[in-house]
Each structure stands twice: as C-alpha cells, then as structure tokens.
Design a protein around this nucleic acid. Structure first.
Length: 968
DNA sequence: ACCGCCGGGTGCC
DNA sequence: ACCGCCGGGTGCC
C-alpha cells in the first residue's frame, strides 16, 4: 500500500495540538533569546510524568483493516465528530490504519481528559492481536504533574482505577511491553540506570561525529562534472547514490518471514516499508557539499544512470536534433538580482543547433583506476565514442526514454502490476523499482537561504563542463516563471526558503510538482516545526530528499524531528511516534532511547569534519589559524562614563534580582547590558535613552516606552531575528510584552490563531493587532541619516587602527575582515579607514542580495586596487559566505554565542584559504566584555545544564549569567 | 461472540 | 403468558 506524505490524515486535529503544545525552543543565539525562552513557560512533553496505567478494550476490530502486533504501540485519537458517540476514541496503528475504537464507557471517561489536554494517553497492545472482535490495550496516561490528581479523579469517578504503581502490572504480562514503555517498569527494579545529564550531553555531542566509517566506497562523478572530485567527495557521492538507489531496509526494520517488522514500534507490514531515499549530508562547511550535490544531480538520474544533458556541438545531424525548450541557466526576471556567475546563457545561444546526447559513461567506478582520464577534455572525447558502444539508439531503455520524453509508454499499467509483485519478493539490497510515473520526474529543487543563492549559481557555472548545458532556473524575484510545466522541465530549480514559504498556500507551483529530488541547503534552519517555511518544506512532493547542513544539531533532540519528518522516515515523521520512541525516552535519560537515536542518525547521515581523515590523511588541509585576544584599556573619560552606566545598571538589576523579577524585566536588563557593551566600543553607539524604567501609568506612556525599546534594538544595529520567520526583522513591531517581530509575521500569527486574542510566540502573553507598536516612520528615516556632528575616536577604534596600519606596512596585500555586531559601529569605523586611505567594502544584513554579491566579488578579487578591508556585521550573510581573500579577522566585540564567532571566522578559514589565518578579538579590560568571554567559556557547562533539565534550571543559569555579567 | 442483548415464537410433561 | 424459556439474529463508535 502506498502512503503519501500527507498520511497524517486521521490525526489532523491531533497533530496540530501536538505540534503546538510541544513547541520548539530555539537554540539561544543571544542572551536576549535565551531569556525570552526561559520566560515563556511552555508546556513541554519532555517533562511529562506517567500518571498511571489502565487496561482497556479495543472494540470493533472487524470493521477495520489495521492490524497490530504483539507489543505494538497504537495511537489514540479523539473523534468528536463521530455520529454515534461524540466521546469516541479511535485506535490506529503506526501507519495510521484504524484498528478499532476504545469501548464506549472507557472512551467516555477518556474524552474529557483528552479534550482538555489533562493527559496524553498512549496505548500498547500486548496480547490478543489475533482477536476478531476485541482486544485488550494497555493505556498509559502522561501529563504534567499538576494534572495528575485531576486525571486520576476523573477516571475513578467513571469507575476506572489507574494503576499508579508500574511494577505491579508486570507479573502477568512480563512480555507485553516494548522497550520504551519498559522503562517505566524497569526503572523501578533498577534494571537500567538512567543516563546522567553529562552522559547524555556527551552522547549528544557525539551524535553526529564518527559517522565517517567507510560507507559505500567511492564513485566517480559523471563526465559532465568538470571539477575532479576529492576523495572524500567521491565517497559522499557513492554514499548518496546508494541512499537514492538501494532499497535497503530503513533503520529498525527487519524481515521476518514474509513480513517486514519494525523492531521499535513492533509494527509489521507485508510490503517493503517505504524507504527514505536521501539523508543528511552534514559535512563541515568547506568540504564541498555543493559540489557533491551537483555531482549527484548529474550522476544519479533514474536507475543509476547519469542525467542526460544537452551537449552543445556545432555540427549536428538534423535528424537527431531534438529541440525541446532549451535554455541554459535560465534566469528570467531575476537576472538583475543575481548578476554573478550566471553568464552561461551565452554559450548556448551562439550555437545554431544542439544535439541531445547522453554524454555519460556507465557510472560506478569503484577503484581509482581511471584517475588519469579525469581531465574534462579527455572525457569529452571518450563520450563521443560512447554512443557507438551503446548502439545507435541513444536511450535503449524504454522506461528511461519514456521518462525523458515525458510520455508514458503503453506498458504502463502492466508494468505496475509486475512491479508490485516483485516488490513483495524483493530482497533487502535490491535497487528500488521505480514506477513509470516516478521515472517522469526530472527536476531537482534546491532550497537555500538567500545568502548562498548566488553561491549555488556560481558553483554550477564553475563545476559544469562548459560544453554541457544544464537547465538551471532560479525561481526568485517578482517575475519568476510560475508555470509548472516549465519548472518541471528544468534539470534544476533553485529557490529560497522565503520564496517557498511565501508561495506556500498561495497556489504554489513548487508544491504542485513531483520533484525528482529536493535539497535543503543549510537545512538546520528549518528546525522549528511551527515556522511557516518548515510547513512549506514538508509539503513538497519529492522522490528523494536531502538535507545539507554544517551544523545539523544545535543542542536538542527536538531539532532533529523536523529533519526526520522532512526525510519521511516513518513512523517518526508523525510527532507522536517520535516523541514516544525517541524524544521522551532520550530526554528522560533512557539508554535504549539514546541508542535508537544514535542508530537512526547513523543510518541517514554522513558527516566529516575539517579534521576527519581518510586513509590516515586529513580530508583537506587548511592553513593554520591563530586566535589572539587583545585587551583594550578604556581612556579616562570613557572609563568614567562606563562606570557611571555600570553603577546605575547594577543597581537596577540588583533590585530585580532581589525581587526575583529578572526574567520579567529582561527587556530592561537587556537594555542595560546593551548599553554597557556599546560603551566598550564607542560612545556614539548609545542611543539617547529615556532612563525612566518605572511602570507606565498611561497607554501613551507605555507606547512611548515600547518605542524606546524598539529603538534600542534597531539602533544598536545588532541584527535582531524575528522568531516567526527566523530572518532579520523587517517592518519591525513590538508587542506589549516587548518582543519584536516583523509586522507581516506577527499579523499572520494573530490571524491564523482564529481567536480574538492570540498568544505571543515567545512568551505566550496575549497579543492583539491593535496593540502592536510600530516604530514611527519619520524617526526611522531620521535614525538612518543621523550622523554625529563631529567624529570622535574611541579606545577600541584606536586599537583596531593600530593593528591595521601595522599590518599594511608589513604586507599591503593582506586583506582583513573587521567584524562587529553593531552596524553603527561599522559606520563609525568608516571615517578613520577613509582618513588613512584604506580601500574597504561593507557587508551587512540590510543590503540587497545584488549588492552583497557585488561587494563579495569586489573583495575577493585579487586585483591590485581591490579593497583590503571588509566591514562585516557579525550575522550578515549566514554561513555559506566565502571570504577567503581575507586572512586576518578582527572581532570588535564579543558575541553571546561563541559559535557565531566561529562561523564568522570560518568564512575565511575554509577551503581555498592559502594564508595563515590570524584572528584578533578586542576585549575591553575590566568590563562586561570580559565577563561575556568568561561566560562564553562556561557556555559548554551551561549547555549541559540546559540540556534535559527543567526550565527552572535553565532560568537559574540565565539569571546566574546576568549576575555574573554585572558582577553583582 | 465458545459471549450478552434483543425480540419473536412459543407454552404441561 | 401483563410471564419464563428457547433459539435465531445479531454485534464498534
């Protein structure tokens, strides 16, 4: 039976509720976010406790086809619309097939509890699975501690007594429980000891490490890939092709007789479980994920054959010329936005005719026996001979040919039957059988953040054989071609997460196409399942799915769900099974659960780091990197101003700490910290502030205060992130609970809530459209043009300039990145740079993509007059950015999250860097900055504490942070 | 369901 | 017999 990806049908309401209550908590990028996250007391499935258990009865088995095995978990779904009983509770197996109903009396008792979210009820069928009419089910009630008594009482009122002592039930039914539910029992006996937070943290850190062991040998790329692959890239290609082609059983499935059996959920099926064709390529950045994917696209079309590409030749026999809609690197309507790297259009247009030739040799070269032939010219010659070898028919395989022409061959229906039959007898390692429909899919859809869009285009350009035409369409910009027919005739369509999610729900052509392959670049950015773009991504139809990510896991098992769901790793693409089998066991320290998670990740992930080795040699050798901290002493007047601000802030925060209201006043706390950090950089960074922090008496006053906070966020130039779209805030508004969002984003949250009052995504406070406060437009413009009357220097500016001048006199060819979180600081720095005759460019979050590309190109240029300095805002651009022209990095101010700094450094310390990399971090002596650095160092410990611990612990450590920062 | 329940057929032993 | 008993029909929610 085929299940499509929308199989969550029956759970519609169920999974909505589930998704919402189990809200994702994003990795704390800034302390601000960290505090917000702690402030919002969200219901957390991880922290739920077992109330008790109850034997119930499933009835009506004969009316439904869903079957269950001994020990199999089942889902319980309320059916309030059931015409016979509005208390109905449906029972379904893991694949969503209905098994029966809970007996009505029991259902009546459960309905209230389920509808009011007092408990989550989970079922395991431990015996009687062969019964025709009814069977027993063990029901476990999970929920928040405070609901426990209410649930027990509700049930007992209806005559149902929950067994609250897990151990007692054990005697009779020793064998019924499965591994994960076993924990509830065995823990009592001490059979397994729970993992400590340390062990868990450690295991989690290593989850994505050591996944390197020889996967599937090596594979040469198709000849149309002009760049020779490095050894590790060939290994990745081989692994990826295998993941796409081989019908190996997914993790936790094994064959038992005629059936396929899932060892975790105890589900079994007659058919081969649908395989995950794809996975996570989690190589460190700089290892060439992009090239590997390009190679995959060209090398592994249907049935393991290379993508048939158009080859440009000047002389052509007219009979063979098969002109389809031909455009090379189509860029309709968006060329202006990209500019760089897409000039490929021209090469095709000056040729009169084109011939379609399958330029590729039969793939799969395991040994490295043909390394000499890898120069592209040579390859082209070789392939010219190819057709004769393969016969005069270019595509002898009918299905293959049909796939290309887009028409289904007459054998279609017949073929389908045999396919189905053969799939039953298939052995695990055979390759996947593709139906004629499957073979029609041609296009790979690549979704990436805007910042790396141009990189993809460059890389296609760079790595493709210039004589080969690949149809690459950039689906971006207002003029984008929305024709499904057109898009699905491309070889590659590239778009951004934002375009995808803005199209989503708006008769999106991207969602109407059956893609051959969908590739999510920087896939970790879809880790929040509530985000619109995550939903948009899940709704895509594709045969093969890939996630590229340099940082697959931030700090939580939650983050993984989205990835697993996108890959369609059943049954975990449904939240309930993920929670029951993986998330809850793992977060509660269950060893078996962790083991399962490790197995799962291992099966679908390939990850190599810069330090990985193949055959004892490092994958890539990067030049040395040295990090220096340069202490900066404030001048006397600066110090005085700083101390003044610090004392004032210390008093305020000290009061909050004493009152225990730190988290309630985090906006103020943040403001104080922000001002101190600004003092450390430059006095002109400080926005003129009203220091009135008292309670607002009138609405007008409240409004004024909110605007003040918003001003603070904006004026600092620190790239604030909107928690809804996860992008930089555009059209900022601030809620009454003092959280900043894009106006369209929060407006949508409110409108989709369907209620008069919605809840703030960050703190769950009530929000109304009428109460959103916007930044006054005039002030916004004024803010932008505000220039200090006369420029002045600061100690930090001096420190930087000293370094830059010294460097220039030593070697004028050295290029530098000057990085700050405050874009206004970058502006301040422009003046002395100009004065000293430095040629510089600037890259920050406010720039358009076109401008960015241009700036990067200028900077990367090796021309004599090219800029030697780039002023870079810490978060601008995101990860894909390649700034290898720079070999010196100056970090002007410390970031809350050391990973952000690392990422920034890695933009020049990456593949292609020829020089030694020197990083200088400026830290003001005896200041909040020094304390921030200490906290950075402590970050590992904090993460440990935060992981798998209660919200209270996390809160405590955040308050501790603040106390430490202020030296209270 | 190798049950319970319903409702029609039936009615000394 | 306005009962009991028998045995067939029937059966989730």
């Amino acid at each position: 039976m085929q299940f499509n990806r929308r199989w969550k049908f029956g759970w519609g309401r169920f999974s909505e509720v589930d998704l919402f209550t189990d809200r994702h908590e994003s990795n704390a990028e800034t302390l601000s976010q960290a505090i917000r996250a702690a402030a919002s007391e969200e219901p957390d499935a991880d922290g739920s406790v077992l109330f008790g258990q109850l034997k119930g009865t499933v009835v009506g088995l004969r009316y439904y086809s869903g079957v269950v095995n001994q020990g199999e978990m089942v889902g319980l779904v309320r059916q309030p619309q059931n015409p016979y009983d509005r208390n109905a509770v449906m029972v379904a197996n893991i694949y969503g097939n209905q098994v029966g109903h809970i007996k009505k009396e029991l259902a009546a008792a459960m309905a209230y509890i389920m509808d009011n979210n007092l408990a989550k009820v989970e079922g395991v069928v431990f015996s009687g699975t062969k019964n025709t009419y009814t069977m027993p089910v063990m029901l476990s009630f999970w929920g928040k501690e405070e609901s426990k008594n209410s649930v027990l009482e509700q049930m007992s009122r209806r005559g149902y007594k929950l067994n609250t002592e897990g151990g007692k039930l054990k005697g009779d039914n020793q064998q019924w429980y499965n591994s994960q539910d076993a924990r509830a029992f065995s823990s009592k006996k001490g059979v397994t000891t729970a993992l400590t937070a340390d062990e868990l943290k450690n295991a989690f850190d290593n989850l994505f490490e050591g996944l390197m062991e020889s996967k599937d040998g090596e594979k040469e790329a198709a000849v149309s890939v002009a760049t020779p692959l490095l050894l590790h890239q060939k290994q990745a290609l081989s692994w990826m092709c295998a993941r796409e082609n081989k019908a190996a059983l997914p993790p936790f499935w094994e064959k038992r007789g005629e059936l396929y059996y899932n060892t975790l959920t105890c589900f079994s099926a007659k058919e081969l479980p649908e395989r995950v064709r794809g996975g996570i390529l989690a190589d460190d950045m700089g290892l060439g994920k992009t090239l590997t994917v390009i190679a995959l696209i060209l090398t592994n079309f249907h049935k393991g054959k290379p993508l048939p590409v158009e080859k440009c030749v000047e002389k052509v026999s007219p009979i063979k010329a098969k002109t389809t809609s031909q455009m090379a690197l189509t860029l309709e309507g968006s060329s202006s936005a990209v500019g760089a790297g897409v000039s490929g259009t021209s090469s095709g247009s000056n040729l009169t005719q084109e011939e379609v030739i399958c330029v590729d040799e039969p793939h799969a070269v395991k040994a490295a026996d043909k390394s000499e032939k890898s120069k592209s010219k040579e390859k082209m010659k070789a392939t010219k001979r190819k057709p004769s070898k393969e016969g005069s028919v270019l595509f002898e395989d009918l299905d293959f040919a049909a796939a290309l022409s887009g028409s289904t061959s007459g054998t279609g229906s017949k073929k389908k039957k045999t396919d189905k039959k053969s799939s039953l007898t298939q052995i695990a390692e055979s390759s996947i059988t593709e139906s004629p429909d499957d073979l029609k899919a041609r296009t790979t859809l690549i979704i990436c953040p805007l910042s790396v869009l141009s990189n993809w285009l460059d890389q296609f350009e760079q790595h493709m054989d210039p004589n080969v035409k690949l149809n690459v369409y950039l689906y971006y910009g207002p003029e984008r071609n929305r024709s499904k027919k057109f898009l699905s005739s491309q070889d590659v369509v590239i778009t951004t997460y934002n375009v995808l999610s803005s199209d989503f729900g708006n008769k999106s052509p991207l969602h109407g196409i059956s893609w051959l392959r969908v590739v999510l670049d920087e896939g970790h950015i879809i880790r929040n399942p509530n985000a619109q773009m995550s939903k948009a991504v899940l709704d895509l139809k594709a045969q093969r799915r890939w996630i590229l990510s340099g940082t697959p896991i931030q700090n939580s098992v939650r983050d993984l769900w989205m990835l697993v769901a996108f890959l369609g790793l059943k049954p975990f693409d449904t939240r309930e099974w993920w929670n029951r089998v993986i998330q809850r066991p793992v977060t509660q320290g269950d060893r078996a659960g962790l083991q399962h998670l490790q197995t799962l990740v291992k099966c679908i992930t390939l990850r190599r780091t810069k330090n990985s080795e193949v055959n004892g040699r490092p994958l890539v050798s990067l030049p040395e990197k040295k990090v220096y901290v340069e202490q900066v002493e404030l001048s006397q007047p600066e110090r005085e101003e700083y101390e003044l601000a610090r004392t004032e802030g210390k008093n305020t925060i000290g009061r909050y700490v004493a009152e225990g209201t730190v988290l309630r006043n985090y906006a103020d706390v943040l403001a104080i910290l922000m001002r101190l950090r600004q003092h450390c950089c430059h006095p002109d960074l400080l926005a003129k502030m009203s220091s009135d922090l008292g309670a607002a008496a009138t609405p007008a006053e409240l409004r004024e205060r909110l605007i003040e906070k918003l001003r603070l966020v904006l004026a600092s130039g620190s790239d604030e992130e909107c928690s809804v779209c996860l992008d930089s805030v555009r059209l900022p508004v601030i809620t009454h609970c003092a959280h900043v969002y894009c106006r369209p984003c929060i407006a949508q949250v409110i409108s989709t809530s369907g209620q008069e009052v919605a809840h703030c995504p960050l703190c769950r406070g009530e929000i109304k459209t009428s109460e959103l406060v916007e930044f006054p437009q005039e002030e916004m413009e004024e803010e932008n043009i505000t220039k200090p009357e006369r420029w002045r220097t600061s100690s930090k500016v001096q420190a930087l300039m000293g370094n830059l001048l010294r460097l220039r006199s030593k070697d004028s060819s050295i290029k530098c990145l000057v990085v700050s979180q405050f874009t206004r600081f970058l502006t301040i720095l422009e003046t002395p740079l100009r004065e000293h005759g430095f040629s510089f460019v600037r890259l920050d979050g406010t720039m358009t993509q076109k401008k960015r590309t241009q700036v990067i190109q200028e900077f990367q240029s090796s021309a004599a007059d090219s800029p030697t300095i780039m002023l870079l805002s810490l978060k601008a651009g995101g990860v894909g950015l390649n700034l290898t022209a720079a070999s010196h990095v100056f970090l002007m101010d410390p970031a809350w999250n050391p990973a952000t700094e690392e990422q920034c450094i890695d933009r020049c310390h990456r593949l292609g860097q020829k020089r030694k990399v020197v990083v200088t971090k400026f830290i003001v002596k005896d200041s909040v900055e020094e304390n921030m650095v200490k906290i950075q160092r402590k970050k590992q410990d904090l993460m440990e504490k935060a992981f798998g611990s209660t919200n209270t612990d996390r809160k405590t450590s955040r308050i501790d942070d603040i106390v430490a920062l202020m030296e209270l």
